[in-house]
Design a protein around this nucleic acid. Structure first.
Lengths: 154, 154
DNA sequence: CGGGATAAAGAAAAATTTTCGGCATGGAAC
DNA sequence: GTTCCATGCCGAAAATTTTTCTTTATCCCG
């Protein structure tokens, strides 16, 4: 596995914030010319440090103002049931994130919907339909204080 | 507030997945020429549906393999204390997300670190240092099953 | 039927991405 | 000490994309 130098890290930090920065702008901030910056970015993409580039949308304007975290426990913990659950979850568009957790509950889901009514329907007709779910515990987000999409680059 | 037509929505769905798509490629998928696609994107940026463009990095390659969710309850709930807490949280690079929650606990934090040792130090020397914290309850992510960065576009 | 607004098309200009050859530096081998 | 090779940066040219602008078509309203 390759190692990053300070220039690579600076590129990653900047692109994490704004992927539309041109190589020209990056080069200026780094005190380099276009070529090395371009090559470094391609290298970072190639070895997988940069996985993709995405547009970040406004969930309120999209009509999805409600965020909830839902803790799910399975009734049985056979591998087959767990796999089945994970596959079903991946199909649900409302579920933005899903983590298999240590501790009391098995899974933590982050869910986005447009209204309480929609959430009710989601739980009743989609989530609860999945086999082998034991308990469900939903908590609602009142306010998003912070949402970074990137990670610290040390 | 403006309304989106099907073409706008398709553009948003595509750019949410891959922000590097050129207007040419988008135009081809939409059955349009460059101009209308270009104008629509600029409009979607202008009215705020598209907030930013970011590069998505690989947290394991970055050396940040550990994700935890930490539930925080405040001792007192004065507005001043709450605001202070939120400001302090915003400063902590390890905290990727922070939500003010309904229910038993006040805040839910998503945290990324490189090791258990680092997490220990984070809790002991950074998180716990913040005034007025009542209880802390950390649960560790065993496995990331799904992590979409976008929202469903209806 | 005409006027005006909206959206798309087409073409040209500007800027960026991508490719490529060359130059300097530094380390390894002899 | 010198030669060779690898690495990283530079600079310029080519390819592609972004951006701007003008024109055309369509639809709605008066």
């Amino acid at each position: 596995m390759e190692q990053l130098d300070e220039i690579d890290k600076k590129i990653l930090r900047l692109l994490q914030e704004d992927a539309k920065l041109t190589t020209k702008e990056l080069a200026a901030q780094l005190g380099l010319t276009l070529s090395p910056v371009y090559e470094r970015i391609k290298r970072l993409e190639g070895i997988g440090f940069i996985k993709q580039y995405v547009a970040v949308l406004d969930k309120n304007l999209l009509g999805q103002p409600i965020t909830t975290f839902c803790q799910v426990s399975m009734r049985y913990h056979d591998k087959a049931f767990i796999n089945k659950f994970e596959e079903e979850i991946k199909k649900l568009a409302e579920v933005q994130e899903c983590y298999h957790m240590a501790g009391q509950v098995d899974f933590l889901l982050k869910i986005h919907v447009g209204s309480l009514d929609e959430y009710h329907n989601f739980v009743k007709y989609k989530l609860s339909e999945i086999e082998n779910i034991g308990t469900l515990n939903s908590t609602f987000v009142l306010k998003e204080i912070k949402r970074n999409l990137g990670y610290p680059v040390h």
